[in-house]
Design a protein around this nucleic acid. Structure first.
Lengths: 136, 136, 136, 136
DNA sequence: GTGGTCTAGACCACA
DNA sequence: GTGGTCTAGACCACG
């Protein structure tokens, strides 16, 4: 489970964690029964206070996305309704549009923008691979 | 200029205003010289405090999106980003990364993601062209 | 860090704070990484509202002079102006013009003015060197 | 009498006018009995509301710097104490130091800075000459 | 403890 | 009427 935070967006960190885990669960990226990283290692990895992760997990539990078993950890619950492809794309398009608007304001043209997107995809995949290697 | 607020998202209200006006300016829905709603009426309409809108407009001014003239009002500026290319790309990468992370958690693969990006670029350019056509 | 306010000058208090901290950072009196006084104590010491200092610090952050970490504090940044050369010169010209206008009204001629500018540059560089020496 | 305004400094425009006229009077640039520009032309020249100039002149009168003769205009009063050279230079140094600090933050080096100063002096002298030509 | 956001309301500068 | 500044005080996010 790879989570990335943006400390400057104004969006609370714990909500960013909630959103990303919920999205992963809803899209089938995480399946019912899958264990989540425990609080302390995740907090260390994200360089965030433990309370922040605890709050995110608490929020996810009240939302019914995960379930915590004392002494064992947190697990994905049976998700009622994974997103349909159309819904997923709509959520994604919101994010993409924001990047496009920023590019326009910064005077970045389509070609340069697409170059940057590919560059960031490469960087992301590298990070993801590194994270997975560490887990194994 | 229609603005919609989501008071439950955790995203600061003033940033929601900033984003929506930036998007409108980027797409050509608002054009250089166009006046923005005045602070007080907009605050009343959105049922937020006057200072919240003032903060949003101040932020837009420092970003170089609008120009405010005390006693007269706020106007869309000729967009020319005052930042260096390096800084510009850094700002943009933050936005792009957010979209990539969302794609990852939604289980959208690289190819599909790039397809969506191109689709949204097309849509954006179409909206911008339509707005320009209206001007003529 | 000693800050002095003049409540009668008509210059906004938050801008006075900005100027004085900028000057301290520029002269080396405050060095990259140095923490600034926290908002609340500084506000109490200067007998102004907390929001006034917060606004000053926010302005300093957008100018790239300091960096604020929520929950930890504000710190002097490695100064690297994020602006384009053209914009930079424009900002600087405003400051220079103010000095020139003052010289004009005080009846100071070009030669004498340039002499003073060089004198102040020497003095500034000396202060900066002294501050750096202290560091070692 | 050449006056230059900075609409972005945060300092009230009418106070900028007051300061510049007071400096000119105190330095001997304007002598007792000299007439000031009347309100309307000055307001037009500075692209400012007439009320703003009227307020500046009123302030100058209460400060005892000028005297208004109904139907005739405003004139410099006998100034009690023109600034001594040392005092004058001190006032000027404050302005110069501000420009130097700004240059430092913007990463402008001494040579480039001095070049800009000379450039602005040229520009100023040109404006001053043009203004004088118009008056004649 | 830190900084950030928002509200409510006052006063100022300017057109 | 416009936007700008400041105050006072509340609550939130985070360490």
């Amino acid at each position: 489970m790879l989570i990335e935070l943006n400390f400057k967006s104004g969006m609370p960190v714990y909500l960013q964690v909630v959103d990303q885990i919920r999205a992963a669960a809803a899209s089938g990226q995480l399946r019912p029964g899958d264990p989540l990283s425990s609080i302390r290692p995740l907090a260390m990895q994200l360089r965030v206070n433990r309370n922040t992760i605890a709050k995110a997990y608490a929020e996810l539990e009240t939302q019914g996305v995960i379930e915590t078993v004392a002494g064992k950890g947190c697990f994905i619950k049976n998700s009622a309704s994974p997103f349909r492809k159309q819904v997923r794309n709509q959520m994604l398009m919101v994010e993409i549009d924001q990047a496009i608007v920023a590019a326009h304001h910064l005077g970045v043209k389509r070609g340069e923008f697409l170059g940057l997107v590919n560059e960031r995809l490469d960087a992301f995949e590298e990070r993801a691979a590194a994270a997975q290697a560490k887990e194994i």
